[in-house]
């Protein structure tokens, strides 16, 4: 049984009080001009998933509490939650530092882009 804590309203409950919403930090390709979205980008958005054995980043919804979506960092082997954070936020720096493989690449790219902006 997973014990989940909502970072928005603070409610704590088991997994049946929440809704697992799949991988976090997926951005829809720019939609102002659909012609600019390639088939590969659309495929990546809809179907390709980071599927790590270990630390993973996910979306959850506080189903029976405030109803808000939020983010969670969870280990897919131990099933242990490492952090809960807001839907517009990045994970805490110490959790980002633990990310490996495709997640590490993603956060490196994202942090670099935010620094430039």
């Amino acid at each position: 049984m997973l014990v989940v804590k909502c970072p928005v309203c603070g409610a704590e409950g088991d997994e049946t009080d929440f809704h697992a919403g799949g991988q976090a930090h997926i951005r829809r390709p720019a939609s102002h001009d659909p012609a600019h979205v390639s088939d590969e980008e659309q495929r990546d958005y809809l179907f390709i998933r980071i599927n790590p054995k270990g630390l993973h980043f996910e979306r959850w919804r506080c189903d029976r509490g405030c109803g808000k979506w939020f983010h969670a960092a969870r280990d897919t082997v131990t099933l242990e939650f490492k952090a809960f954070y807001g839907i517009t936020e990045l994970p805490p720096a110490d959790v980002i530092a633990e990310a490996k493989g495709q997640w590490a690449e993603y956060f490196a790219k994202r942090l670099k882009a935010e620094k430039q902006a």
Partner: peptide, 18 residues
């Protein structure tokens, strides 16, 4: 269930969740 981890070794990303 481990197909994503093996394919990652060859740099191929998969439309799979375990």
């Amino acid at each position: 269930g481990h197909v994503s981890t093996i394919m990652d070794m060859a740099g191929v990303r998969m439309p799979i969740e375990s």
